[in-house]
Each structure stands twice: as structure tokens, then as C-alpha cells.
């Protein structure tokens, strides 16, 4: 097999599509991490977004409405997460697990209540995200398929990375956020609203995960499937660790994970069993944890 031959337009063109949902969720996770909240509910927030996007697009008559409802769905579930994690001060890990299971149960329940189907919902009335072709860039070798021909959410994700980089290290809110995550009590003695900042970070992660979900169900495909987030929220959790909660590092991690997904996708085209190619992203993500070497979690 010609290895270089793998790097064709299919592979390059799918990389941004696959990397974007992970990147958006990871940016949300990053903000929470910086604020001192370990958010493992990204998976559920993303799933809620994916479902919301399909609902919005179906009833609202367009992709924009889909994106709007996706963000609202992510926000609503994130508000619940924030209520339990910040106001009621519950165990973050248990809350994250509960949010993921709630999203999975709710979407299946609503899938049946609203559309009367099980498993998956596909309908011509669900409008997908439009594709933007960048004139000039499009024709370039390699760069063309990589940069051109994606939904606006893909470009938005890149802009969000830059915006969060600036927010964290140039803006007063970023300084306070970092302080809150490092030593909440100290921030509190200086009159900085710890709970407010944490709510903000969690809600932002809800909106970002909502966008991620919209990219999944209206960008990469145009349908909703039960549990279609398929562990991407968890891969995002690893991306935050791997990128050391730094926007550029997280971007790098997400490009790597997105690349393995598109590589798996590409290999599937070569008649390899789909089960084997699909497990590639999880294996690579797992492997990256060996490089990351978390701080010792036990005594």
C-alpha cells in the first residue's frame, strides 16, 4: 500500500470536520479547567447540542435555527450542571457522569416523543450546514481541501481558539479565571466572585459543546443517531489534559485526534473492517495519556 497515497483530498478534507467537534468541546473543558471545575459532562453537552440542532433545523426551517437550538440545548444542560456543581457543591465527577447519562436518556426519550422513532432520525426537512468554498484557496494542492469547503462552525472553532487565548492571557476576566482555578479562597478574599466565574465557564462550555454537537449532526452528517457523540466528549477531556489547558496546546491535541479519526475514515475506504478503523481514535487518545502523565492522583 502506498502510504503517501493516503494523504489525498479525502483525508485532508475530513480532518477539519473531525477535529472541530472535539476542539469546541475541549475549549469548553479548558475554560472549566482554568476555573477549577473538572467538567467530564462534555460528552453529554455535545450530545444535547447534536439533538437540539436537528430539532431546530427541522422545526425552524434551516441550519441557523438548528445551530441556535443546539447552543440553547447545550446551555440548558450546562446550567443544570452548574447548579449542581457550583451552587449545590456536589461531586464534580458524579455530576459529570449524571449529566452524560441524562443527555443520553433525554435525547432518546425526546427522539421518541417528538419524532416517534428509535435509533436514528433522518428527514429531508432537516437542513444541514452550508459549505463555504474559499475562492483562490480552493484550487491549491493540499491546502485547498484542508482549508476550503467547510461549514462556518469549523471556521468559528478556529476563531474561538484565538479568542480564548486572548481572553485568558490579556483580559481581566482571564486573569481572574486563572486565579480562581488556582486558589479559589484567595480570589474570594479579594472580592472576586468565584461562583459567578465558574457559572460563566460552565455555561460557555455548554454553548461551545452545543456548537460541537451541531457540527456533528448538521455538518458531518445530516441526521441524529442515539449517542452519536460516541466518546468525543471524553476525547475532548483528554485533549484538555494533553494540551495542558492551553488553547494552542489543546488545538494541537485536537488536530492530532481529528487526524486519527479522518485516517480511520480513510482506511475504511480501503476495505478494512470498520470496527478496527473506528477504534483508532480511541487507541491514539489512550496512547496520548501516556505522554501526558497526569499528576499522581493517589496519595
Amino acid at each position: 500500500m502506498d502510504l503517501l497515497g493516503l494523504f489525498d483530498a479525502t483525508l485532508l478534507g475530513s480532518l477539519p470536520r473531525f477535529a472541530t467537534p472535539i476542539l469546541l468541546a475541549a475549549l469548553g473543558g479548558l475554560l472549566c479547567e482554568r476555573a477549577g471545575v473538572f467538567n467530564i459532562g462534555l460528552e453529554g453537552l455535545m450530545l444535547a447540542g447534536a439533538f437540539g440542532a436537528v430539532v431546530g433545523s427541522y422545526f425552524g426551517g434551516g441550519a441557523l435555527a438548528g445551530v441556535g437550538v443546539a447552543v440553547l440545548a447545550g446551555l440548558a444542560l450546562a446550567a443544570l450542571l452548574a447548579l449542581f456543581a457550583v451552587t449545590l457543591r456536589g461531586n464534580e465527577i458524579v455530576i459529570g457522569i449524571a449529566i452524560n447519562l441524562l443527555a443520553s436518556g433525554l435525547t432518546v426519550y425526546l427522539l421518541r416523543s417528538i419524532f416517534g422513532v428509535k435509533g436514528a432520525f433522518q428527514d429531508p426537512a432537516v437542513v444541514g450546514l452550508p459549505i463555504h468554498r474559499l475562492p483562490g484557496v480552493e484550487a491549491l494542492p493540499f491546502l485547498g481541501p484542508l482549508l476550503s469547503g467547510h461549514s462556518s462552525i469549523v471556521y468559528l472553532a478556529l476563531a474561538a481558539t484565538a479568542a480564548i487565548q486572548l481572553l485568558l492571557f490579556r483580559h481581566v476576566i482571564g486573569l481572574r479565571l486563572r486565579g480562581v482555578g488556582e486558589h479559589a479562597e484567595a480570589a474570594m478574599t479579594l472580592g472576586v466572585g468565584v461562583d459567578r466565574l465558574r457559572y460563566g465557564a460552565i455555561l460557555a462550555s455548554g454553548a461551545l459543546c452545543g456548537l460541537a454537537g451541531a457540527q456533528l449532526s448538521l455538518g458531518n452528517v445530516t441526521l441524529f443517531v442515539e449517542n452519536m457523540s460516541a466518546g468525543r466528549g471524553w476525547i475532548a477531556v483528554v485533549a484538555v489534559m494533553f494540551g495542558r489547558a492551553h488553547p494552542l496546546g489543546v488545538l494541537g491535541a485536537c488536530l492530532l485526534f481529528g487526524f486519527t479519526e479522518s485516517l480511520g475514515f480513510r482506511l475504511q475506504g480501503l476495505m478494512l473492517p470498520s470496527q478496527l478503523t473506528e477504534s483508532l481514535p480511541y487507541m491514539v487518545t489512550l496512547a496520548s495519556l501516556f505522554v501526558f502523565r497526569a499528576r499522581a492522583s493517589r496519595g
Partner: peptide
Amino acid sequence: VFGSEPARGGVF
């Protein structure tokens, strides 16, 4: 300065 930062339009 944490909590009472000098800033211009929110930029630290």
C-alpha cells in the same frame, strides 16, 4: 492588583 485590576476596556 487581582480583583481591582487596572484595565482599558476590559483588557488588563
